[in-house]
Write a protein that binds this DNA or RNA. Structure first.
Length: 800
RNA sequence: GCGGGUAUGGCGGAAUUGGCAGACGCGCAAGAUUUAGGAUCUUGUGUUAAUUCGUGCAGGUUCGACCCCUGUUACCCGCACCA
């Protein structure tokens, strides 16, 4: 058959759509399988081939599952709220709604041309009213359950985007969208209490099947540590200064304390502090620094002693000085530390610079040269002296602290609460009303969705206020509780809101009375296999697990973890080996490949180019190999002779069916395809194959190159769609040849190769090896010390 | 600094997990076909004078090591003054 992809690809795409081949059934006798890929953000640039690789992995799995008889849900949608669209809209003067619709149309046509087997009847768009209505609904449920709060705090702020960012959105001190430096700004912001779920998010990882590095990254991000809170008395007052430490057993070594420059104690004790100007000056200096300067460039410790206040070491009762320094962060622990210079590197540097006492409490190092962080015998510590086990000494100190009411054991997490509002237009409106009498009042559920008003000017205000604040008709409203005049919240939700629960909406996308029908949720959840990018592991993955766990706690979803299994694909790099990006000009548009070589070649190539989980550069000429492969498959139709089994090919077919079947489950698509190529070479060597064999090969190929497979299936008289034909089975006993080639080594070096029957007795195998001419020569006059025989693999004869 | 990972031909990458290193594809070379180019097909292709040497480098364990152990170098990713 001539391989005419331009004719067959549109033909089958249309047939699949007409016959609804890929629509998931809600009431089915078949076992269910839910495969999920990260839905795209529809940017103006359209998709690049990286998206195609990201979706092709589970596309193959989904297609295989259908052929295995599963009722498969493999949905797609669009995560369409977000800053890039809004920035583009501002630049071009086009409304974000129009920009979004255009981008979605472009993405849709690109996806359809590749022939993905998505269920297009369940497409969702996070910016549509009947979707974000439920995003707001979940937010209000969280509000109702005390997981939403407002606080004036130092927040990550991007001066370029004019927006407050969460910790997750400003990793590395850079804005996630424009990569500008983040500054710390004091602002009143909305938070979601994700820290309340820190322990559950950590525990939940035990019960899921995620790639080890995905799990590890989440564990690190949550950052649990165990230690103690200790209250130090401030000598001049009745106030306590509370600190967190992981080593309470070093308390006798505490010679000073440090608090963050922003610590509230400075304001509270203003009157008692005699050098308040110096402290204010230092704090201002710190505020000017970017996150980068504060963490990377400042190697030398700086700080100012607080004059007029001292603390009392609660175990030794010694009076110790208090400093402010920016090496202590307000955002972790209590914003204050007890400093143990003998055993903490940072404290040691600080103490050395400021001439503070250093008291050794753990033996083993030389504290005149540096801090000693290792284990050892406790000294200078009264009742702890002589302890050598860290666990025991900590335990003993905790008992003491609790007995005396000085402190108590506790845990800390690096993860912070989720700064949830954005001062922007293109996002879900936060459904809260501010009432002078009632405070923050939720918009009643029956008024959802609180619609995003249409505006002309969606630029944010210079003072960092949302564009919605300018619309009086929107802002001014009545309090839902008391009916008096009130004002609406004008900030919107972050981009991550809509994607935190989208996989639930796919299950019942058109439901008007609930986010999804409980019975359907019960049938489809959890997602059986979720694949996406590593960059979402500490953002979207954490957020959506948090939302899901909350929904589980209030009885909306039936399971506590949303994703049973999570894998990740590697990036496709540009032909230059650099990350694909518009600015580098090395982006490959899938449409260009489909035009010239066809969708099946594109699909096969992105999976064949290398290990699915690793990054690999795009290579135009390598794609030729995939094109030749598909052409040679099409040409096989000329070699078909008869039916049944070709004896010389029987083993090769069983081997291939096995390997392709198993490799798909491990995302080893490159070797699955390589194996089919090898089979093709075997067939070429034999010169013919039967129609039945051809039908097996066509079905194996179907998940990878479905258009060609359907065409061949039809021409050969296959029943129905190849996409729903039964997946081929293999017979384990037929995956091996009756005779095997075994390498014969003498003293570990391969000297000959013999043909012997499969699984023949070891004694026969060794006898056959010794009988070989080349081996016999080498054994002459030598003493055999040892004979090793690995059945069907290798024989090694050791001689002297 | 902490955590995770990688290192194999000219290139992308295989190797049943301790058993013939380099599958499969690209590229390259020669030949066939073609007016020519392209495309296609066939054969060859780690290295060597060798039965040599070969999986970043140096050792070790073993009959046997890309695989296990010790040390070391380079690169990539994530977090980072986390108390």
């Amino acid at each position: 058959m001539k391989y005419d992809f331009k004719q067959i690809e549109p033909k089958w795409q249309q047939k699949w759509e007409e016959a609804k081949v890929f629509c998931a059934e809600d009431n089915s006798e078949k076992p269910k399988y839910y495969t999920l890929v990260e839905f795209p953000y529809p940017s103006g640039a359209g998709m690049h081939v990286g998206h195609i690789k990201a979706y092709s992995g589970l596309e193959v799995v989904s297609r295989k599952r259908r052929m295995q008889g599963y009722n498969v849900l493999f949905p797609i949608g669009f995560d369409a709220y977000g800053l890039p669209t809004e920035n583009y809209a501002i630049k071009t003067g086009t409304h974000p709604r129009i920009v979004t619709d255009n981008n979605i149309a472009k993405f849709t046509s690109q996806l359809k041309r590749v022939g993905f087997s998505f269920d297009w009847s369940r497409v969702i768009d996070t910016t549509e009213e009947d979707y974000y209505r439920w995003t707001q609904w979940i937010f209000l449920k969280m509000f109702e359950n005390g997981l939403v709060f407002r606080d004036n705090a130092l927040v990550n702020y991007c001066p370029h985007c004019k927006v407050v960012l969460s910790n997750e959105d400003s990793q590395g001190g850079k804005c996630d969208i424009c990569h500008s430096d983040i500054v710390q700004k004091s602002k009143t912001v909305w938070y979601l209490r994700i820290t309340q779920y820190a322990e559950k998010l950590l525990q939940g990882l035990e019960e899921v099947d995620y790639l080890p590095n995905v799990k590890q990254q989440q564990v690190n991000w949550i950052g649990k540590s165990t230690g103690a809170f200790v209250n130090f008395t401030i000598a001049q007052t009745d106030e306590k200064l509370r600190i967190y430490t992981t080593r309470p057993d070093t308390l006798f070594g505490v010679t000073f304390m440090v608090i963050a420059p922003e610590h509230p104690m400075i304001q509270e004790q203003r009157d008692r502090i005699t050098n308040i100007e110096a402290l204010d000056a230092y704090r201002e200096e710190c505020a000017k620094k970017t996150e980068f300067e504060r963490t990377q460039l400042v190697k030398e410790k700086s700080g100012v002693r607080i004059e007029g206040l001292t603390a009392i070491n609660p175990v030794s009762n010694k009076e110790i000085p208090i400093y402010i320094s920016d090496y202590v962060m307000m955002g972790y622990g209590t914003g204050a530390i007890m400093a143990v210079p003998a055993h903490d590197e940072r404290d040691w540097e600080f103490a050395t610079k400021f001439g503070i006492d250093i008291i050794e409490v753990i033996k083993g190092g030389d504290i005149s040269k540096g801090a000693y962080a290792g284990d050892g015998e406790m000294v200078n510590s009264e009742f702890l002296n002589g302890y050598t086990n860290k666990k025991e000494s900590i335990q003993r100190m905790l008992e003491y602290l609790e007995e005396k009411g000085i402190g108590e054991g506790g845990v800390q997490y690096k993860m912070k609460d989720w700064a949830f509002n954005r001062q922007r237009y293109w996002g879900e409106p936060i459904p809260i009303v501010h009432c002078a009498h009632c405070g923050m009042v939720a918009v009643p559920y029956d008024e959802l969705p609180l619609k995003l008003p249409k505006v002309e000017n969606f630029e944010p205000g210079e003072g960092g206020e949302s564009p919605l604040a300018k619309i009086e008709a929107y802002v001014n409203c009545k309090c839902p509780k008391c009916g008096r005049d009130a004002k609406r919240e004008t900030d919107t939700m972050p981009q991550w809101a809509g994607s935190s629960w989208y996989f639930l909406r796919y299950i019942d996308p058109h439901n008007e009375s609930a986010l999804a029908d409980p019975e359907k949720l019960n049938y489809w959840l959890p997602v059986d296999w979720y694949n996406g990018g590593m960059e979402h592991v500490t953002r979207h993955m954490i957020y959506s697990r948090f939302w899901h766990k909350f929904l589980y706690d209030i009885g909306v979803v039936p399971c506590s973890e949303p994703y049973a299994k999570r894998t990740a694909q590697g990036l496709i790099l540009g032909p230059d080996g650099e990350k694909m990006s518009k600015s580098r000009g090395n982006v490959v548009d899938p449409n260009d490949v489909v035009d010239v070589l066809g969708a099946d070649v594109l699909r096969t190539y992105v999976l064949f180019m290398g290990d699915y989980a690793s990054a690999a550069p795009w290579n135009e000429s390598s794609m030729k190999g995939c094109k030749r492969f598909l052409e040679r498959i099409a040409d096989l139709t000329d070699l078909i002779k008869g039916e049944g089994v070709t004896p010389k090919l029987e083993t090769a077919f069983h081997k291939t069916v096995k390997k392709v079947s198993l490799d798909i489950e491990d995302l080893k698509f490159n070797t699955a395809i390589a194996c089919m190529m090898t089979l093709l070479n075997d067939i070429a060597a034999v010169g013919s194959l039967t129609k039945d064999e051809m039908l097996i090969l066509v079905r194996l190929l179907c998940p990878f190159a479905p258009h060609l497979s359907e065409e061949l299936w039809e021409q050969l008289g296959g029943d129905g769609f190849c996409a729903l034909a039964p997946w081929p089975q293999w017979d384990e006993s037929k995956t091996v040849d009756s005779t095997v080639e075994v390498a014969v080594q003498v003293n570990g070096k391969v000297r000959a190769s013999i043909q012997i029957p499969f699984n023949c007795p070891q004694s026969d195998a060794i006898a056959a090896a010794k009988a070989d001419e080349k081996i016999a020569v080498l054994l002459e006059g030598k003493t055999v010390i040892k004979e090793i025989c690995v059945p069907n693999k290798i024989i090694n004869i050791v001689v002297k």
